[in-house]
Amino acid sequence: MNWFHWLANPARFMRFAARLQPWIMALGLLTGAAGLYFGLFASPADYQQGETVRIMYVHVPSAWMAMFIYVVMAAAAGSFLIWKHPLADVAAQAAAPVGAGFTLMALITGALWGQPMWGTWWVWDARLTSVLILFFLYLGYIALVNAFDDPERGSKAGAILLLVGVVNIPIIKFSVDWWNTLHQPASVARMDGPSVDPSMLLPLLLMAGAFKLYFLYLLIVRMRGELTARRIRLLRLSDIA
């Protein structure tokens, strides 16, 4: 916890993050390259899905990221509302467009898999619809945060929206168990362990790792942007005063 407090200082955090940044990018590129190699070349076709299983190596990790980033943002929103820590709010706002991007990737790659395998780009079933709602939650948050003249009020309203919207995350996760959907049930995060063959689990997990690192890198870049924007705002205010 002490270490956590030490990092809570924005300037110190940014210095620390800047030192980590090249390592994160290098590790991310390496993991991503390995994931692409195993996903596209060194793994077998599925006995049911055929070669389209390769779409899963980007679709599933994007969908995981879509949910993961939302949970990170909701946790940040909670700590912003409770402890009023500005860095938490900066992190949530910096992460939002990246979360929306990964959700969009999950939706589009899902459609590109659905057309050849299900015979349709889209169905209004529980899993697909709840992910579409997640996408709109991201967009709604971005719009809400920027809708106030007073950025402090925007941050607060946005944080509340994030916390209310977090109810959608278990709905997405369990939608395939609770309702009859076209989408297949979980095959990795299961109580009895993954049911995916190791040759396919490897590219899946590599891509998931690469996406996480990519997100971390973007988060640092965007947090620096958001902190700079805040300093500009502060300087403008003091200029007027």
């Binding site: 596209l40 055929g50 070669e51 389209t52 390769r54 779409i55 980007v58 679709h59 994007s62 467009p97 990246v98 991007g101 990964f102 969009l104 990737m105 589009i108 790659t109 590109l112 898999w113 057309q115 050849p116 990519y214 973007l218 870049v221 965007r222 620096r224 942007g225 700079t228």
Partner: peptide
């Protein structure tokens, strides 16, 4: 026979990842 679907999936992923990186860096 699924090349079009597979490559456009990877294309979309690369495109979105690239747009996010470039816009973030330009923004900063």
């Amino acid at each position: 026979g699924y090349a079009a679907y597979i490559w456009s999936s990877y294309g979309v992923v690369v495109a979105v990842l690239a747009v996010m990186l470039v816009s973030s860096i330009l923004g900063v």
